[in-house]
């Protein structure tokens, strides 16, 4: 994936509000931890980790960033702690097993289609392969009874997006107001913003 993302709020950074009343103490604590203590690999093995990283690069490509938002480490951390999300859809095993199985299946898909590891595929092929799964065209044989599309959308993609868009860099890029306690907002109408929000969308100016 080479075409890149053109940010509508290029100079906006919600972290600049750090010392303002938009951030309360617990928000600072939570974000400090997220930004400074990126977890180390514990649960996944090295191969799985690299595979997951390659997948994440396709799900949320960040070619323009020198310091991309880390995603894999937080998935690994959640698996280490055996976190669950409250729903286990039929056919999908418990979280840890589901991820292992899903990664193995994607590796198998790559092997079957291209005779090589997913990680070594070029970006275009990687993306196409993931699209097939997303569109429901995975090869059931590789998935050992696990519904591939459901795993892809409801487990994998959801978790990746939850991690990415919880990151200040991702929130800045879409012009989200970001943390807002105790200070919230005053100006509620269309095209009206408070001075502590992102300035108007570049495309609208």
């Amino acid at each position: 994936m080479t075409d890149s993302f053109d940010p509508p709020y290029p100079n906006y950074d919600i972290l600049r509000k750090w010392d303002s009343p938009s951030y309360n103490q617990i928000t600072r604590d939570v974000l400090t931890e997220r930004l400074t203590a990126v977890p180390q690999r514990q649960f996944l093995d090295e191969q799985e980790w690299r595979l997951l990283q390659a997948i994440c690069d396709q799900l949320v490509p960040q070619p323009e960033r020198t310091d991309p938002v880390p995603i894999t480490p937080f998935i690994d951390a959640a698996l280490t702690e055996n976190r669950t999300n409250g729903t286990r859809f039929a056919g999908i095993p418990a979280m840890r097993e589901a991820w292992r199985k899903g990664l193995a299946a994607i590796r198998a898909e790559a092997m079957a289609q291209h005779d090589t590891d997913f990680v070594s595929l070029d970006a275009h092929r990687q993306e196409a392969l993931l699209h097939r799964i997303n569109d429901g065209d995975a090869e059931p044989a590789h998935w050992d009874g696990m519904p591939a599309q459901r795993f892809f959308r409801s487990v994998l993609l959801k978790e990746v997006l939850a991690i990415y868009y919880a990151h200040p860099a991702a929130q800045s890029e879409i012009g989200f107001g970001g943390p807002a306690a105790p200070r919230g907002y005053v100006r509620m109408g269309a095209d009206r913003m408070d001075p502590w929000e992102a300035p108007a969308d570049r495309r609208n100016r």
């Binding site: 972290l15 750090w18 009343p21 951030y23 309360n24 600072r28 930004l35 400074t36 306690a181 105790p182």
Partner: peptide, 11 residues
């Protein structure tokens, strides 16, 4: 102490 910002009494 954090590298991101300095402490400020918030709410």
């Amino acid at each position: 102490p954090s590298s991101i910002g300095s402490p400020a009494p918030s709410d």
